[in-house]
Design a protein around this nucleic acid. Sequence first.
DNA 1: AAATCTGTTCTATTTTGTATAGAACAAAAA
DNA 2: TTTTTGTTCTATACAAAATAGAACAGATTT
Lengths: 130, 130
Amino acid sequence: MIIRIESESDIPIYLQISNQIIEGIARGYIKAGQTLPSVRSFAADLGVNMHTVNKSYHHLEQKGIIQIVPKSGAVITSPQNFNESTINKLKDEYKHLIAESLVIGMPTTQIKELVAALLEEFKKSNGQLK
Amino acid sequence: MIIRIESESDIPIYLQISNQIIEGIARGYIKAGQTLPSVRSFAADLGVNMHTVNKSYHHLEQKGIIQIVPKSGAVITSPQNFNESTINKLKDEYKHLIAESLVIGMPTTQIKELVAALLEEFKKSNGQLK
DNA sequence: AAATCTGTTCTATTTTGTATAGAACAAAAA
DNA sequence: TTTTTGTTCTATACAAAATAGAACAGATTT
């Protein structure tokens, strides 16, 4: 799995890492039970600081996406027992994203089509999706 | 239109204001051609600094959602001629949001239903939606 | 015409977030 | 036993966010 860091981006590096890991899981490049690289080796690969990768991992753990085993590694968790607040935050993000789409003039049909197309794209990469 | 600021939130105040204005437009509470409150009066109402509201307005102007007329006011623009980068950023946000939803185990049907339900909710508030 | 209100611009300070750096610790793995 | 692991600590540097006060010039209201 390839991760690209854009230093010019307005998105913090630790979030760029988190987001691309999430996409990698959704696409099936990494699967539940597998382990992420150590913070030191990953940082060396990406050319960033160890603490930046560490922050990214803890960000993913807070979302319930990975589990950090002290002195061992970061393991992708199975999609289960995720907390309510994570789901509510996601729903709020959907609400705001749809609101903005409507405001800039996207028709409802186009929004539905965009979502359906993206879901198809992920399904294409990851056959195990429900 | 009522706007609530949560000081505990990790979302910056100026973004909370922007987001709720966008939702207000999507819901039809404010319509194209109408004017937003002055930065000073709005700031007084919300209990925040004038410059924070000013930042929010300029953020909305950059998105093409309002037009700031110097020495006059901030006017809601009609949904037209939006730049490509705004749309591409939106699509990227949809992609990441859907990826995260899939990772925490939401079935594709549930994602589609959530989007459809939110679209219905906005339609219910705003009859003029396409 | 005068007073008020408007967004703008400027300096200034405080707080928080981001990113890097280096060092040390204790436990797990090789 | 040596290496690797995540963790913790101090430290620095920079940027973003939020507040504050003042002043300006144009628009609006009285």
